[in-house]
Design a protein around this nucleic acid. Sequence first.
DNA 1: ACGAATATGAACACAGTGTCCATATAAATT
DNA 2: AATTTATATGGACACTGTGTTCATATTCGT
Lengths: 200, 200
Amino acid sequence: MTQPTEPVRRGRGRRPADEVRREVLQAAGELLLAEGMAGFTIEKVAALAGASRVTLHKWWPSKGALALDGYFNVVGPTLAFPDTGDLAADLTAQLRAFVHLMSHTQAGRVMPELIGQGQTDPELMAAFRERYSAPRRALAVEILERARRRGELREDLDLEVIVDQLWGACYHRLLIPDQPLTDEFAEALVRNLLNGVGRP
Amino acid sequence: MTQPTEPVRRGRGRRPADEVRREVLQAAGELLLAEGMAGFTIEKVAALAGASRVTLHKWWPSKGALALDGYFNVVGPTLAFPDTGDLAADLTAQLRAFVHLMSHTQAGRVMPELIGQGQTDPELMAAFRERYSAPRRALAVEILERARRRGELREDLDLEVIVDQLWGACYHRLLIPDQPLTDEFAEALVRNLLNGVGRP
DNA sequence: ACGAATATGAACACAGTGTCCATATAAATT
DNA sequence: AATTTATATGGACACTGTGTTCATATTCGT
């Protein structure tokens, strides 16, 4: 009688489809966090996952798409949007959490590299927008929409613009780090935009 | 008597230093605009310039640094900052010009690719910040500083944050194109920030 | 049980990088 | 003017990574 858990004896032939998929995503995520986009290659992912490069090419349209899948696999669910009824407090809390994630966790090292790669990897950018940025924008707009109904915002606003002036400002500092991403920054964003920076 | 302008007869041996430099920058700029970062390789630049790859490696620390040099060589001086004494008008004019540059010229195709490449090319990011983003931030802050002295802005502001909420918002739409870069956007940015979006 | 789907190893061509030479020429120094 | 130094060049090389083809082995759906 052989061992109950047969040691991995890989050779030719098909392997369970989702087993391969899980191992590849795991390997992609680990490699991405360990080496960043610079050291992220399809070849290395395949080797780490014990899979064939051919398989990876079959299921992922580009290196970036594979990296993004790996990222989601390892980083976990995105930040929740608080909605307590106080817009300023909710926005500040959400932005502080986002700033923290981007400046004190591995996500902050990888996220800009993914966006960067997306600039020359259409498959990655498409997946990023569909699975990450668009849904998060929609969530933010929803929060803003509710606040407007409560009377906390003026009626004649394009809420999408507000999203860019809050989170977009953060991405700016993330991608072009002339200035630091700090809590004070997150707080100033909300204060500036809600109250206005002009003289009363 | 031979032709006054001897046809290029290249072979071994040193060539005039700045002649090589000029030809390389020219080639780099042209290739960048023609094919974007995706098709931009040191090899192609060398071939176009009639230079040796070794030479390019010697003078430029990375592919991105070469591309950025080529970009500056071909795109020309950056946009001027108007300063008429009316902050809202000046900001709107500047942002509209920037938005136009990024959505209706070749610069708008290349700029995001350069920033993208910069995420995994430290030499490029360093050069980009030093030669482009930092000086432009400083210029914007200067305009804001003057407006504040004129009494158009509140006293207790971190002017750097304002830069991110105006130009950073544009870069956000440039790099993650979930929403379009339009004139109305540029105008809304200034209106929102100066007046505030909260209920009075 | 059977056929379709697919993962695998191996091999190949290809592009690009980064580096080494020896050599020829420009630029600087004497 | 002669000489030394700097450097651009062509050619070659090893290396990495991409993308593909092929035959074969195995799983999966029916």
